[in-house]
Computed example of a mutant assay.
Amino acid sequence: MLELYISSLITFFVVIDPPGCAPIYAGLSAGATPAQRRTMAIRAVAVASAILLVFALFGEDLLRGLGISLASFRIAGGIMLFLIALEMVFEKRTQRREDRAAKVADDPEAEDVSIFPMAMPMIAGPGSIASVMLLMARNDGIERSAVVFAALATILLLTLVALLLAGPLMRLLGTRIEAVITRLLGVLLAALAVQFVMDGLQVSLR
């Protein structure tokens, strides 16, 4: 169970990327008061948690209704996570997030950034949705599912802390250290993505 928790924790940490969300949130909420920043951070994590919970509980039924096999979803999800990993290693994901944040910041009507882009797609994006569905599918039973949920809850709590401490955190880390961490996590995510694809291929080739 401890191994499952650590593996799930790493997966969610890499995909949701709390340290990566912090600078984007700091930039988007630069004109807000401290109280508004706290409110938006809490709302963003709450909405993202609800989205991920729905897909964790009912994602497999949704796939079944669409006629998509779980093995196919594992392969597709693994490929998608691998592409995210490549972007992290070559720092393209950070640039895309910053570009998206800049577009929202330039919109004078976009004052509340908690739902978009923070909750979705930055926290509950395609990668995190695919990850939670894949991990739930690979771990049947109440106990193993509870471990996955515990890992997800831990990362969401860490994300909330990162958003609340976004300004001080960025001053502490600096851009160089953040880049090193992002690339290292990208390599780990690539390995996990390949494992997802291999699992899917093993099931489909039986």
Rank of each mutant, 00 (worst) to 15 (best):
S114F: 11
F73I: 01
G186R: 07
G31N: 07
R96F: 12
A146M: 13
R176T: 15
V54Y: 01
E60Y: 09
E60W: 07
A30F: 10
L57K: 06
E143M: 15
A137Y: 09
R38F: 08
A46Q: 12
M1F: 14
A101Q: 08
I6W: 02
F58R: 10
L135R: 10
S72T: 00
E178M: 10
M136T: 11
M88K: 03
L185S: 10
P117G: 05
L83K: 10
E87V: 15
S131P: 00
A101G: 02
A166V: 03
L66R: 02
I51F: 04
A110E: 13
A162Q: 03
L81H: 02
L53Q: 09
S29T: 11
I6H: 08
S29V: 07
R138H: 15
D107T: 08
L28M: 00
R183W: 05
I42E: 07
L83Q: 02
L66A: 06
I10V: 15
A119Y: 06
L62W: 06
I51A: 03
A124V: 04
A76Q: 09
L81Q: 03
F90K: 15
R93P: 14
R183H: 11
I24N: 03
L86C: 12
V148P: 02
T159Q: 09
D199P: 08
M198Q: 15
V15W: 01
G59E: 07
E3H: 14
G27P: 03
F82V: 06
D140I: 13
I79K: 03
E3R: 12
A56H: 01
I51T: 07
L185P: 01
M122L: 07
S72A: 13
L201M: 10
V47N: 05
D112N: 05
S29L: 06
L83W: 10
M133G: 05
F58S: 14
A153S: 08
P121E: 01
L156A: 01
